[in-house]
């Protein structure tokens, strides 16, 4: 960055002043109809002293860190700087021009008025120079700040994702193990499949950390294993229903998202109902969205407020992966059912 910036600065500096010199040559040739060597030499002096003094001015600005100051503090300093630069530039120019005998003014002027006139002349060049320089950096600075905030946000989001992804409720694991132990005597065949189901879930929760998205089919298989295990636990207190449009199976979704939502449906819904209830998973296309709905028996009444992190980050996570059109909401329907709904725009899926 510093090397590039410095090259860019010199390019602007030389081409800017060079362009100015050219314009002045053209200007003189149109109005005075003669381009003398003396004129060229005079303009060369103007351009070179301009480059030198503004370069010194730039060094001063950089070393004293004026660019980092808020605008209202930087402006008075810059104003004084501009004035000094103009005066110094004029002094140098007058000395050089006189010693080389390049003076363009026919009538001899006194030193002071001449200095003032030259300074005014210079102001017309150096004030725009400073403005350009300052505003370029001002914009650059705010753009960099914006970039930094964005980077920070992305980092925070990534960390959030990691915590959600790796989250598989230990309560569930130990309860499942306990059920399986009871099943070993009661129904050995079911115990064997239960062990397979549990290992599938554990494996996928470990792999989830590495992936951005998985196909809906993969995720659904995990959820099926999960619900099969919960069914061992809850027995007839848990009814499970699927309404899956086969064509949605290839759609990408964030790993462990459906799993987390179904886990919540059990934790906040079914397990709170003495008589149990139903969990229904619906997946289909609606307009240009892949729509995923998880319904469970239960009530919303603030039970999920404590889980605010999970809900907010689910939406966040969707929008990072699929853009602002992706959405997530949760609401109560029909009085005793809670419905969580995920909308993922189809065309933007990766």
């Amino acid at each position: 960055m510093p090397k590039n910036a410095s090259r860019y600065y010199w390019l602007c500096q030389i081409s800017g002043w060079g362009f100015l010199g050219l314009v002045m040559v053209l200007f003189s040739s149109t109005f005075e109809q003669k381009i003398t060597v003396k004129l060229i030499e005079f303009l060369a002096v103007v351009v070179i002293t301009g480059i030198l003094t503004t370069h010194v001015f730039r060094e001063v600005i950089r070393r004293s860190g004026w660019l980092m100051l808020p605008v209202e503090k930087a402006l008075p300093k810059l104003l004084i700087g501009v004035l000094l630069t103009c005066v110094v530039d004029s002094l140098i120019r007058i000395v050089v021009v006189d010693s080389l005998g390049l003076s363009m003014t026919r009538q001899k002027m006194d030193f002071i008025p001449r200095l003032l006139a030259t300074t005014f002349d210079n102001g017309l060049l150096i004030i725009p120079w400073t403005l350009i320089y300052y505003f370029y950096h001002y914009i650059e600075k705010s753009r960099k700040q914006q970039l930094d905030t964005l980077k920070l946000e992305a980092l925070v989001k990534e960390l959030e994702l990691k915590t959600i992804k790796s989250h598989i409720n230990p309560h569930f694991i130990f309860n499942a193990l306990n059920s399986i132990r009871a099943l070993v005597d009661e129904n050995p065949a079911r115990a064997r499949t239960a062990i397979t189901e549990l290992s599938n879930i554990l494996r996928s929760s470990m792999q989830a950390e590495k992936l951005e998205t998985v196909t809906f089919e993969k995720e659904l298989n995990i959820v099926k294993d999960y619900l099969a295990l919960e069914h061992i636990r809850f027995e007839d207190r848990l009814q499970i229903e699927y309404a899956i449009d086969e064509d949605t199976l290839d759609q990408p979704i964030p790993p462990m998202m459906l799993q987390t939502l179904v886990e919540n449906a059990i934790k906040h819904g079914i397990s709170k109902q003495v008589g149990g209830g139903k969990v229904k998973i619906i997946s289909d296309f609606s307009n240009s969205y892949h729509e995923l709905v998880i319904q469970n028996t239960g009530y919303l009444n603030g039970a999920r407020n404590g889980d605010g992190f999970g809900l907010a980050s689910t939406k966040n996570r969707l929008q990072i992966l699929f853009g602002q059109k992706a959405n997530f909401d949760i609401r109560e329907v029909d009085g005793n059912t809670v419905e969580a709904r995920v909308l993922i725009p189809i065309d933007q899926g990766k």
Binding site: N178, A182, L183, D185, I232, R233, E235
Partner: peptide, 13 residues
């Protein structure tokens, strides 16, 4: 305990 299997398991123990 709300889970039949958990009750069975404890009884067995």
């Amino acid at each position: 305990d709300d889970e039949r299997l958990a009750r069975n398991e404890l009884k067995k123990l």
